[in-house]
Amino acid sequence: MKICVYGAGAIGAYLGAQLASAGADVSFVARGPHLVAMQKNGVRLQIDGGERVVKVRCASDPRELGPQDYVIVALKAHSVPGVVDLMRPLLGPDTAIVTAINGIPYWYFYKHGGEFAGTRLGSVDPGGKQWDVLGPERAIGCVVYPAAEIVEPGVIRHVYGKKFPIGEPSGERTDRILKLHDIMNAASLDAPIRDTIRDEIWLKLWGNLCFNPISALTHATLDVITSNPATRAVSKTMMLEAKAIADRFGVHFRVDVERRIEGAGAVGAHKTSMLQDLEANRPMEIDPLLTVVQEMGRLVGEATPTIDTVLALIKLRERIAQQPQLPISGSTQEISSVS
C-alpha cells in the first residue's frame, strides 16, 4: 500500500511514521530544513517516553514519488489550494485523497443530498480548483485530534492523542475506507469509521471557530478562554450561531455547547494553532474555520453577527501582523511616554 503524506509537519510526520512502522510504503512531501533532516536521518519520533527513528522516503517534488494509493493531505487547510497542481503526479486512477485538515473540506457537499448537493464553497476552494483537479469522488474525510510538535528539524514529539476518525462522504463502507482503517489500526492509530463524518468534522470545527481566533486576539490559552466569563460567553454565542447553520444541513452534535467548552478547558494551558501561527508570523487558518461558516450561513439565511465581528477582527489582526514593522518616529515616542 503506497501512502504519501503531503505536508509532513508535526502531525503529518507522526502519522506517516506510525504508518511506515506498520509496513505501509510511506513517502513524505515536505520542505526546508525539516525535509533535509528527515532525508539525512529519518524521522525521529519521540513517543511514549522513548524515541525511535523511522526511515521514510522524503521529497520536495511529488514527481519523484509517482502515483499513490492514498494521499494524506496534512497541510494547513488554507495552504492546500496553492499546491493542488503539484499533487497531480501523485494521482492514479484509484488514488484516494484523505483530507486530514482542520475546518470544512472542499468536498463537503459531495453526495450530501438535498438542495445543496454538489455546492462548492469558495472560501475553502477558491475557483473550485480542488474540486476540479483532486475531485470530490477521491475524497475521504479525516478529523485530527492528536497534538504533536516539531522539536527541531526532523524531530517530532507526540504530545497527546491518537484518534483520527475517518469516513466516506457518502457514509458507505467501501473497500478503500476499510483498508485505510486496517492499516491505521495496525499503526496504533485509533481510526473509527464514521457513517456521518460531517458530524465529526463539525464537532472539531465547533471549538476551532471560536477558541482559535479568540486566542489569537487575546494571546490567552484554552484554560483562560473557557474560564473567563466574557470570553466564554463570546465562544458560546459563536458556537450557537454555528449550530443553527449546521442544524440546517442535518448535522447532529453528540455533545452540547457547555460540554464542548468544558472539554476544551480541560486541555489546560494550551496555545491554539492559530495563536502559534500568529506568534511565528505565519498565515492563520481563518477561511477554513470562520469564513466558511459565514458562507454556509448565507446559503441558508442564518445570521452570524458574532462570528462576523470576530472574523473581521482576526482578519485585520493577520493583516497588521504581516505588515513590515516601521520604525517609531521621535514624536510618537514622546507621545507614548506621556500616555
Rank of each mutant, 00 (worst) to 15 (best):
Arg298Thr: 12
Leu311Gly: 00
Ala37Thr: 07
Lys204Trp: 03
Arg157Val: 10
Val43Gly: 01
Leu289Arg: 06
Asp247Arg: 07
Gly23Glu: 07
Val80Arg: 01
Lys236Ser: 13
Gly263His: 02
Val251Gly: 00
Arg138Leu: 12
Ala24Asn: 04
Lys2Phe: 08
Gly171Leu: 10
Glu279Asp: 11
Leu275Lys: 01
Lys162His: 15
Ile72Gly: 00
Ile214Glu: 00
Leu90His: 05
Val53Asp: 07
Ile72Ser: 01
Arg173Glu: 15
Phe116Ala: 07
Pro67Glu: 13
Ala216Tyr: 04
Leu299Asp: 03
Asp69Arg: 10
Leu222Ser: 10
Val255Ile: 14
Asn212Phe: 08
Thr332Ala: 15
Cys210Ser: 15
Gly82Pro: 03
Tyr145Lys: 03
Thr291Asp: 14
Gln46Lys: 14
Ile286Glu: 04
Val338Phe: 15
Asp182Glu: 15
Met184Asn: 02
Val26Gly: 01
Ala100Ser: 10
Ala96Gln: 15
Asp247Ser: 09
Ile97Phe: 09
Gly16Leu: 08
Glu279Ile: 01
Ile183Thr: 09
Lys111Ile: 09
Lys2Trp: 07
Thr304Leu: 08
Pro93Glu: 13
Pro33His: 12
Leu316Ala: 14
Ala22His: 09
Leu289His: 05
Asn212Gln: 11
Lys204Gly: 05
Glu172Gly: 13
Thr221Ala: 13
Ser27Arg: 12
Ala17Tyr: 02
Ile3Phe: 01
Arg232Pro: 08
Met274Lys: 04
Asp247Asn: 12
Ser331Ala: 15
Asn102Tyr: 00
Ile193Gln: 04
Leu35Phe: 07
Arg173Asn: 14
Gly114Cys: 07
Ile193Arg: 02
Pro327Leu: 11
Glu115Ala: 15
Ile314Lys: 01
Ala139Ile: 06
Val80Cys: 05
Glu258Tyr: 01
Ser235Cys: 14
Met184Phe: 11
Ala246Lys: 04
Pro146Ile: 01
Lys129Thr: 14
Val80Phe: 10
His78Ile: 03
Glu149Ala: 12
Pro305Arg: 05
Ile101Trp: 05
Gly82Ala: 12
Trp202Pro: 00
Gly103Phe: 04
Ser331Gly: 08
Val36Asn: 15
Ala269Ile: 02
Ala264Met: 13
Arg317Thr: 14
Lys129Glu: 07
Phe28Val: 06
Ala74Arg: 03
Gln325Pro: 02
Arg248Tyr: 03
Ile314Tyr: 01
Ala96Trp: 06
Tyr145Met: 03
